[in-house]
Design a protein around this nucleic acid. Structure first.
Lengths: 115, 115
DNA sequence: TTAATATGCAACCATTGGGTTGCGCATGGT
DNA sequence: ACCATGCGCAACCCAATGGTTGCATATTAA
């Protein structure tokens, strides 16, 4: 299945990075990470943004699978969904390692005077 | 210096993730990673985009410090700059670990019946 | 010298994105 | 019953992004 030669989830990683590519959202992730599950109103407190603004950001994070929210009474509680974080982490790991390999290969070529 | 209580590079990480948050740019990174330093014309081959499009993406990556290009003769050669990749990688590592800690703490509270 | 290759720069366009406001609707507390 | 709290939805606005085309410029090759 998926007989791709691609780095195992190239297409699937982009949306995750895109979701993390905003300072406000990164802060939200950090807050959820440290403060545990929280309501939107609480997450809004301490930011210069509107509740609606925060809501939009949360939705973006949710669409990327980084966060999940469910309704509890009159508030909606949001929490981290660490799986996609792992995916992104693994991807960066992969890239870094490949680059190391490429560097070593290049180094070897230079030493052999083949270039 | 920088007596921040922030997760060590929150603000600085967002632009990196943003730069990686595009399928085309992720592919560029992957190609540079495997194929080594390449010219724009070569990087353009095999994509449905224009050379100018690729150029723009390369600039975005460069602004995020992920890539570096210099002029060699009539072509400009671009290569990976892995340091920022490491930074992003470390950041994800940090977040993941914090989440683990938070989970364990929560688990302990539940066991103690404090909640 | 002439032609082909590899870029850069600028203008332009359509779409997305971050952010707001206004309103209506549940739910919880008193 | 009443009011405050917490949300969701929709419309709207402006700036940024992804992508193109057209043209000018430098370099290599014949």
């Amino acid at each position: 299945m998926t007989p791709d030669r691609e780095p195992a989830g190239l297409e699937s990683s982009a949306p995750i990075f895109a979701a993390l590519g905003d300072a406000t959202r990164l802060k939200l992730v950090a807050r959820l990470c440290q403060g545990g599950p929280q309501s939107i109103a609480r997450l809004t407190r301490g930011t210069p943004l509107t509740r609606q603004g925060i809501t939009k950001h949360l939705r973006v994070l949710a669409d990327a699978g980084l966060v999940r929210g469910r309704r509890l009474g009159r508030e909606s509680r949001w929490e981290l969904e660490p799986h996609q974080l792992i995916v992104a982490h693994r991807y960066l790991d992969l890239i870094s390692k490949r680059w190391d390999v490429a560097l070593r290969r290049l180094q070897k070529l230079v030493e052999e005077g083949s270039v």
